[in-house]
């Protein structure tokens, strides 16, 4: 088991003919992801990396049976691309696109509340179930299949954490980058709920950062509904207040969202706080001992 994606996931790529779309299509194929089609309006009939390109999401779903979409379109087309995928009833949408306006994401969240689609992102590295399905831009080789889940607001910091886990002999069940924007399709709470119910996941590493209240909300949820061990690192402890640190979400506003507040809330919920970003792998390994190890898949 794993969550949201596995070897049977049939993926379409929206924006497949763009530079990022084409490059990551090749990378995902190389990892073994089942990419069944691509979408670029007006480029129907073309092929990218051997993948058939269609004009619309609806056509792609009909022709290929795709049940997940990954979006690489420019930010100004983000809302339209997501809306098209929602209209076609795609059950899982991963939005890599960075810079989608906040109001556009509010409209997306209204749509999500009315249906059953799971959306991850935007402005995120995506989701991976190691050795089964990579739906994102993360480097595949750093992952090993196992039982530790990683859920994070960051990109390269997540890769670093995953790499540390792999080096420590701990494989991963599913790793999700929820994204760094103020408004997200899937928050920590949604992800934690899915991981709590996943039989393969034995422990969760949560990587948060300053800004917003995503971690505080997660802490309340962990206290009431998560029984698996949770480890957390919060980036930005030493960031000066009211400074934007690259992610739109990483702004401290009105005393809410400081690293200290997040750490206190998570600690109170029984989460193991990891103080150094270099100690993520070793801390999880020493706590879990030999319980969780890399699972060999064939």
């Amino acid at each position: 088991m794993s969550i949201l994606v596995d070897a049977s996931t049939k993926v379409m790529v929206q924006g497949i003919t763009g530079q990022a779309g084409a490059f990551h299509t090749q990378q995902m194929l190389e990892y073994g992801t089942r990419i069944v089609g691509g979408v670029t309006p007006g480029k129907g009939g073309a092929r990218v990396e051997g993948v058939a390109v269609f004009n619309t999401v609806a056509e792609t779903v009909q022709a290929t049976g795709a049940n997940a979409s990954i979006i690489y379109v420019p930010a100004s087309h983000g809302l339209a691309a997501i809306t098209e995928a929602l209209d076609a009833g795609v059950p899982l949408i991963v939005v890599i696109t960075e810079g989608i306006p906040t109001i556009d994401m509010m409209r997306v969240r209204q749509r999500l509340a009315q249906g059953h689609t799971r959306l991850i992102g935007p402005n995120c590295p995506g989701i991976i179930t190691p050795e089964a399905c990579k739906l994102g831009i993360m480097p595949g080789y750093i992952h090993r299949r196992g039982s530790v889940a990683v859920v994070s607001r960051s990109g390269t910091l997540t890769y670093d954490a995953v790499w540390q886990l792999t080096q420590a002999g701990l494989g991963q069940s599913t790793c999700i980058g929820i994204g760094g924007d103020p408004i997200l399709g899937t928050g920590f709470v949604d992800a934690l709920g899915l991981l709590e119910d996943d039989a393969e996941t034995e422990a969760v590493v949560l990587i948060g950062e300053i800004g917003g209240t995503e971690e505080e909300t997660a802490a309340a949820f962990i206290r009431s509904a998560v029984h698996k061990p949770v480890f957390a690192f919060i980036a930005g402890r030493n960031a000066p207040p009211d400074k934007r640190m690259g992610h739109a979400g990483a702004i401290i506003a009105g005393g809410l969202g400081t690293a200290a507040a997040k750490i206190a809330a998570l600690k109170a919920a029984g989460v193991t706080i990891i103080d150094s970003p270099a100690a993520i792998g070793s801390t999880v390994a020493s706590r879990l001992g030999k319980k969780a190890k890399t699972i060999q898949t064939t």
Partner: peptide
Amino acid sequence: GAGLAMATNDI
């Protein structure tokens, strides 16, 4: 990466 950059300042 922004998260790794913040984490670097932290360490």
